[in-house]
């Protein structure tokens, strides 16, 4: 496999983790976050700072990165969700802008606009991830784990509760579901996954800088979720693949540096607008669950019409 292909697939894997985790929040919980790139960055910077500048072990630094990213999610969620989803949009947008500013300005910790170089890829016993091929496998394993966790969560009663709250909060409350607590919990989980993606990203590039974690990135991730289908795990992965492939495709058309970035962004914006008119639910959608009854009860059901 060519280095170019390896690089593309690794990017897809990492952004699929971001897209998947955001779909939990946007698609399954119905909460709009503009801060996913910020949480991605919190994870990346925490890992980079602790492992490079403070000599922490990769495992400890990863744990810290996940916890801090989750905490950042909680910081914006707890006050905002007491009120409404609109407050959350504001809080998340503000967090994103503040985070970008902090990444660029807190030079002593984040290295400012220069970023943090010298991130080392992890070593698992005899397996060294310095080569791009094993690293790709590692990225996909992380993606698979996150996807499995997400899938499990969504199909569980907790997932059903999320969907109930998403679609009708009043009914959810009337059925005894903890509305605010669930929303905050999902925001924290989404943040944790974004933080994990940040760790893998830093390990991959072995260097991070503020430019990767700006509003534009948050918009890209949102576009991935919308394109692939907000409520489909597989869809968010496909969405990530599609959106990740576009910038390199655009580079085929020989454009000036300064135009390529904005053009890409403008294209994503246009895609969002067009999708809202043509197919707002995205490529793939979640189907209603059948939930069959257990074998033994089938016969009993034929007779009884009484509720115990």
């Amino acid at each position: 496999m060519s280095p170019y292909m390896l690089s593309l697939l690794t990017s897809i894997a990492i952004f699929a983790i971001l897209s998947l985790s955001l779909s939990l929040l946007i698609g399954h919980m119905g909460i709009f976050s503009m801060a996913h790139a910020a949480l991605f960055g919190v994870g990346a910077y925490t890992y980079a700072f602790l492992s490079v500048k403070q000599d922490w072990s990769p495992l400890a630094a990863t744990a810290a990165a996940i916890v801090l990213a989750a905490a950042a999610g909680a910081v914006m969620a707890v006050p905002a969700l007491r009120v409404s989803g609109d407050y959350f949009i504001v809080a998340s947008f503000a967090l994103q802008i503040v985070a970008s500013s902090v990444f660029s300005n807190w030079t002593s910790v984040t290295g400012g606009t220069g970023g943090i170089p010298g991130i080392v890829r992890p070593v698992f016993g005899p397996i060294d991830l310095f080569q791009d091929q094993p690293f790709l496998v590692y990225s996909f394993i992380v993606l698979l784990i996150v996807a499995a966790l997400g899938f499990w969560l969504v199909r569980s009663p907790f997932g059903r509760m999320m969907h109930t709250i998403r679609d009708d909060e009043v009914v959810a409350a009337t059925m005894g579901k903890p509305v605010r607590g669930t929303k905050i919990l999902v925001t924290v989980l989404a943040g944790a996954f974004a933080g994990l993606a940040g760790v893998v990203y830093g390990q991959y590039l072995m260097y991070i800088s503020p430019g990767s974690f700006e509003v534009a990135t948050s918009v890209s991730i949102i576009t991935m979720v919308v394109v692939g289908g907000m409520t489909s795990i597989l869809g968010s992965i496909i969405g990530a693949a599609i959106i990740t492939v576009i910038p390199p495709l655009l580079q085929e058309i020989r454009l000036a540096e300064s135009v390529a970035g904005p053009l890409e962004q403008a294209f994503f914006g246009l895609l969002l607008v067009v999708l809202m008119f043509t197919r707002p639910q995205g490529l793939l959608a979640d189907k209603p669950h059948r939930r069959p009854r257990s074998a033994g009860t089938q016969a009993a059901a034929q007779e009884a019409s009484h509720v115990a």
Binding site: G85, I222, P262, L263, G269, L272, V273, L275, M276, P280
Partner: peptide, 30 residues
């Protein structure tokens, strides 16, 4: 308004607004 008429849920209007913002801002930057 056209989207609202199709009975779009809240998120549809927000996303189309976000998309429009991104398009306009980047067209100017280009």
């Amino acid at each position: 308004t056209p989207l609202g008429r199709r009975g779009g849920q809240g998120f549809v209007l927000f996303l189309v607004s976000l998309g429009a913002l991104v398009v306009v801002d980047n067209l100017f930057t280009i």
